[in-house]
Design a protein around this nucleic acid. Structure first.
Lengths: 259, 259
DNA sequence: CTAAACTAACTAACCAGTTAGTTAATTATG
DNA sequence: CATAATTAACTAACTGGTTAGTTAGTTTAG
């Protein structure tokens, strides 16, 4: 099926904010699918409903658009997860809630794991990640890793968790969640399910948290019960897509938009 | 660092098998990094040490080379894992051994998860995987999934395993293994480790199998002990890189090589 | 001598990015 | 308040370089 396209300029008023957002949203999707080398600026412009030259009005070049795309998708997870990891909740609740928050972030941002993967593949080309990715890692992944690792270590110290290698818990949780979505095409073929359907999503939350709770806690029954409780909590409200943020037409005079 | 290159033709005798293998090996690496759209046929030829036209002597076009690359990397996992899953081992041993065999396959084929990722990203473009990928899924993933699911269900039926959702166990195992490697650039930045180093690899085998064993078995102590035993078993011999298979120079007359 | 394996040079299409505008919205002026 | 001037947002057409793939051979092996 064709990717959703934005309303072309011909049928809507000029709006710099809306145009820039439309370009960025479609850039995220195109870069997530094709990587920066394979992505086509014409495809981004077409999907955004604007002329290709407008990409260069808002962004210096393809590379700058890509950097803006990375920053856009990575900014949300820390906001969603870090406050909870730094709260007064028990280590067990923190780790299980993180698993769920992270999973729901992926539900709401399906391009996120793909874009990360494209950037990680690109890291293999140069032997190291781009300076953009390094900066993003420093500002996003490092705080998450630190807070998450602290929660695991606190759990081990208090006896709530078994004595295990803390950092790998986080990697395993993230790996299970990311792979669930990334492997959606395989799941459709091999298992005949749609991993993005609400029922499958609810089931994954339940089974993933159960798997983690059963593995991690000294008191396995407590871990399983806590996992079930956190899995059953009401879903977080779905984040609004960024392109509908600025639905009210407004003047953009003297506002700096170019990246 | 520059990707390793094959010995150019000028300094070695003509050998269709060696040339074809060199092209395919470097194609795998290039497609894994850049995807089919971003990969450059000139880059593949340069790395293989041949002229670009030779790609078209052995493969119809870029798309055919890509299909051959997919078939090449996917053929090995089934060979490695399926006989063990269909053996008379206990369900617990089967599942834990699968986790290890799969992990070691990824150690020996670092391009495998990246190539799958590129193909899965590509599936998002068209809304469904390519017919090549469908065929590969049918011949590789479906048998693995069936055998693995049967092992899990046997374990549940016999009481060795807890009552859990079988298919997600396999997805979780594969997800933890794949993500471990795919996230290597992040791990280097955030954790200051090299996930490909022998000590980290040994540690991941141990912690991943422990995580699985602690979660899955009714008798947790037994599960953890079995996980430790299987993790500590000697490593499987490393598979020889395909480009060195045909080190003996031989005639290729009348052998059909073109894909 | 023949055929397979291989290459240098080439072609047409594609691509990121630019140019030279046009158009819509805003601001200044009488 | 109406109009002119200005500016920001936008586009059609273009450019020079890149790309997949081809052609017309040459070289090597049997």
């Amino acid at each position: 099926m064709a990717a959703p396209k934005s309303k072309p300029l011909a049928s809507r008023a000029r709006n710099a904010t809306a145009s820039r957002s439309a370009i960025l949203d479609h850039a995220i999707a195109e870069f997530a699918k094709q990587g920066i080398a394979g992505a086509r600026t014409a495809a981004i412009a077409d999907a955004a409903g604007v002329n290709k030259a407008l990409l260069y009005y808002y962004f210096k070049n393809k590379e700058s658009l890509y950097s803006a795309a990375l920053r856009e998708v990575f900014s949300g997870l820390v906001e969603d997860a870090l406050p909870m990891l730094q709260s007064e909740l028990s280590p067990g609740e923190k780790v299980l809630r993180f698993a769920r928050v992270h999973f729901e972030y992926l539900v709401n941002h399906p391009d996120y794991p793909r874009l990360i993967h494209q950037e990680l593949s690109r890291a293999c080309i140069t032997g190291e990640p781009s300076s953009d990715f390094r900066a993003i890692s420093a500002s996003h992944f490092v705080p998450l890793q630190r807070a998450g690792l602290k929660a695991v270590q606190d759990g081990i110290a208090s006896g709530e968790f078994r004595k295990i290698e803390g950092a790998s818990v986080l990697t395993n949780i993230v790996g299970m969640n990311v792979f669930y979505f990334v492997s959606a095409p395989i799941a459709r073929i091999v298992r005949g399910i749609d991993p993005f359907s609400p029922v499958c999503i609810r089931d994954h939350v339940a089974t993933a948290l159960d798997f983690i709770g059963a593995s991690l806690f000294n008191d396995r029954k407590h871990g399983i019960a806590l996992a079930r409780k956190i899995a059953a909590a009401p879903a977080l409200p779905r984040k609004q897509p960024s392109s509908s943020k600025n639905s009210k037409v407004c003047s953009n005079k003297n506002v700096r938009f170019r990246s």
